[in-house]
């Protein structure tokens, strides 16, 4: 398993967050951390999402970029191998 972190700027629109989280789950990435806050101008949401998966991180970045509500995706952390046990379930947090 690898962890990947993405930074996204997202339009405020119906279902934007659900689209992101749903896509992430369907593509077999587990969300282990999720932060969202208004962009400085208030027109967008800035999101930082950390996931873990056996799949390729850049592929999810491109799939997220295909969502029309997502205006930009930054792939912050390149693949970083960690032991699966390193993240205990209770340590995972989701804030959204």
């Amino acid at each position: 398993m690898n962890t990947f972190t993405y930074q996204m700027r997202v339009r405020h629109s119906e279902g934007a967050l659900v689209r992101i989280l749903g896509l992430t789950r369907r593509r077999r990435f587990d969300v282990i951390q999720f932060f969202a806050q208004p962009s400085p101008d208030g027109d967008f949401m800035d999101i930082e999402m950390t996931v873990r998966s056996a799949r390729q991180g850049p592929t999810l970045a491109r799939q997220l970029a295909n969502l029309l509500d997502v205006t930009s995706v930054g792939f912050l952390v390149a693949e970083k191998a960690i032991a699966e046990k390193a993240i205990a379930p209770q340590a995972a947090s989701v804030a959204c």
């Binding site: 119906e14 279902g15 659900v18 749903g22 029309l68």
Partner: peptide
């Protein structure tokens, strides 16, 4: 239906 179809649409609108 907006939620149900999220995984199978390119995009969707709930008109307000």
């Amino acid at each position: 239906i907006f939620g149900i179809t999220l995984p199978v649409v390119k995009h969707s609108f709930l008109v307000d």
